[in-house]
């Protein structure tokens, strides 16, 4: 039973990914695209955790932590660039 629930959850997260990609392509502004990318990062963490439950292996958490870190740094860097036109002053 729990396998079926995990599969349904994976499909739901994939649909969420498709919606994010729509916003990523459609825009209309740059900030919208940054927001869509940020949501993609968070969704990919969810996907990795679900897959690791499905495969019953706990090796995937390091990837999840790395994606969380890199996603945050990337979003902050792009936003800072949009605000100041420069990342490190």
């Amino acid at each position: 039973m729990i396998e079926a629930v995990i599969l349904i959850a994976i499909i739901m997260v994939l649909i969420a990914f498709l919606l994010n990609f729509y916003r990523l392509i459609a825009g209309p502004t740059t900030v919208d695209r940054v927001l869509a990318l940020d949501t993609c990062y968070i969704n990919s963490i969810a996907l990795i955790v679900l897959i690791s439950m499905y495969l019953r292996s706990s090796l995937y958490y390091e990837i999840a932590i790395l994606i969380a870190l890199m996603g945050f740094v990337g979003t902050v860097a792009i936003s800072k660039y949009l605000i100041r036109g420069d990342i490190i002053e």
Binding site: M1, I2, A9, M12, L19, N20, A36, T39, N43, A46
Partner: peptide, 24 residues
């Protein structure tokens, strides 16, 4: 199962909001 389902549901709702709402 309930926790997994709630989590996936909220993730989906977040993305629906991203597409559906009118301004940034």
């Amino acid at each position: 199962s309930l926790l997994i389902f709630i989590g996936a549901f909220f993730t989906l709702v977040g993305s629906i909001g991203l597409v559906k709402l009118p301004n940034f």
